[in-house]
Amino acid sequence: MQYGKFSLVILVTTLIINSGACAQVRTYPDLGTTPSAEQLKDWDISINVSGDELPPGSGIASQGETIYMQRCVGCHGQNLEGTSLGKPLVGGQGTLGTLTPKKTIGVYWPFATPIWDFINRSMPPNLYNIPVDPSQKLTADQVYALTAFILYKNNIIAENEVMDRETLPKVEMPNRDGFIPTNLDDVLDYRGRGCRAGTCP
């Protein structure tokens, strides 16, 4: 049958092209196993600046404030001003070019998604390797809410703005252009951008 033969040719060609593109010739095929979908989902907690790794969920500042007052205030302070146990999460405007620069979220961080990533992976910190009670792990909704609260307290978003996987990556951070080189694609060429002897221009 004409049609069948034709599609077989396409199938074979696709297979060849695919395997060519993959260069999937394993030298040690018996070492390593394929992770299950669940394992991938559990482990993959990195959130890049495009935000396409963000999980579903959402939250607003007022919800975040409630959680903050229970889980974060002891180390980061009533007004997010920081304590001896935790960094300030607000303030520092106008300090970067001075002798007392403050690299706070509102002043220094170029993107908003890393706030989500950091709270989700590291906060509250488990300083003594105490086994974590799973019910204490922040949910995605809670992390969105806390992120919204911190952004709101930095006057970067409005009080009622909903943070989710669509809106969070679009939040414009004040210091987005505060880095050399500004364009992320230019970062890779270490010597090309003039770095030498450990110092970049």
């Binding site: 990195s46 959130i47 890049n48 600046v49 495009s50 170029p110 993107f111 998604t113 890393p114 990533d117 950091f118 590291s122 992320l184 970062v187």
Partner: peptide, 8 residues
């Protein structure tokens, strides 16, 4: 990935 993650 295709971009740095700008981790902490």
């Amino acid at each position: 990935g295709a971009q740095p993650w700008i981790a902490h």
